[in-house]
């Protein structure tokens, strides 16, 4: 029998499940799950709508090691209800962040979410608020909170708000970050404003490359689990504070960005304004060439 040639070195972050991402991210064998699927801590709301439940409610939380150092990890499963936040799902992340504050341990959040679950919207919205508070409290206590974004569902709605509070964001080209999703914009503003089926438009407006170029993400990586791992290790080497100076720098950065690009009608105009000669080629560039072209990008180094 001829063995199949599956390449185990290469794992697409975009394609991987939440559990596969964690396994590939942390040191081999180091992950221990909290409130695992065997505890069947599932959403109390979905059965009311006759919807299928998942044993972990779409998020895996636990602890592991990265280069030997302890880290706390949460990974959303973007294929279960679009990775959306519900009551249990949110509470698991809140609890993990509170543990981070108490233990002063760094946290990796593997976002893969469309936002808040429609069927448990109130609980989900509350969870978003609690999580954002818990992120800031963990950071105030000295923990880094790193967001990793490159899943199928992107990082939308409340998820993007949480991402905005993280100390570092790592994104791949496939990763999308936005408060409103393409369909929401089209529904509210019309297809002339945003054609949600124009996928090239979606990606150049919300995708990883654009977010990296305008300082919406700090590290750009290939769609490979090992690339995310390396970027996470690098991001944890510097502990960043979270005080008034940082928040004021963030406010200044955002004001400057709005002033600089606020009149642009399309991401390509922003890339031109950044001085990128081959701006229309940006979507097609492989990572090395893209990073070279992105030399003069906006960054948020002082502001997170």
């Amino acid at each position: 029998m001829i063995a199949a040639t599956a390449n185990t070195d290469s794992l697409s972050w975009y394609e991987a499940s939440a559990r596969q991402r964690i396994d590939a991210l942390v040191d081999p064998g180091s992950f221990a799950e909290f409130i695992g699927p065997e505890q069947r801590e599932m959403s109390p709301h979905l059965s009311i709508f006759d919807l299928p439940e998942q044993f972990d409610d779409g998020i895996v939380v636990g602890r592991g090691r990265l280069e030997g150092s302890p880290v706390l990890v949460a990974a959303q499963e973007g294929r279960f209800m679009g990775g959306a936040f519900g009551e249990v799902h949110g509470a698991k992340l809140t609890g993990l962040l509170r543990a981070a504050r108490a233990l002063q341990q760094d946290v990796l959040i593997l976002f893969d979410t469309g936002g808040v679950r429609l069927q448990e919207a109130n609980a989900g919205e509350l969870a978003i608020a609690e999580i954002m508070r818990a992120v800031i409290e963990a950071r105030r206590a000295g923990a880094n909170v790193i967001g990793l974004i490159g899943g199928r569902a992107g990082c939308y709605g409340g998820g993007s708000l949480i991402a905005g509070t993280c100390s570092r964001l790592i994104v791949s080209e496939q990763g999308r970050i936005s408060v409103s999703g393409p369909e929401v914009i089209e529904t509210n503003k019309g297809i002339e404003e945003f054609d949600s089926r124009d996928r090239a438009l979606v990606w150049r407006t919300m995708g990883g490359k654009h977010r990296y170029l305008i300082g919406g993400a700090d590290t750009f990586v290939d769609d490979e689990a090992l690339a995310f791992r390396q970027a996470a290790m690098d991001a944890l080497k510097v502990t960043r504070g979270c005080g008034v100076a940082v928040l004021e720098a963030e406010q200044t950065r955002l004001e400057r960005r709005l002033q600089r690009f606020g009149a642009a009608r399309d991401a390509v105009e922003i890339w031109q304004a950044l001085g990128i000669d081959t701006s229309t080629d940006i979507p097609a560039l492989p990572t090395d060439a893209f990073l070279a072209a992105a030399n003069n990008r906006e960054n948020a180094d002082d502001a997170r």
């Binding site: 499940s17 559990r19 695992g36 699927p37 065997e38 439940e53 998942q54 044993f55 294929r79 279960f80």
Partner: peptide
Amino acid sequence: MQAIVGVVASGNLE
């Protein structure tokens, strides 16, 4: 003691 595979999604199962 335990193992889990798959996800709950349209056309899928855990």
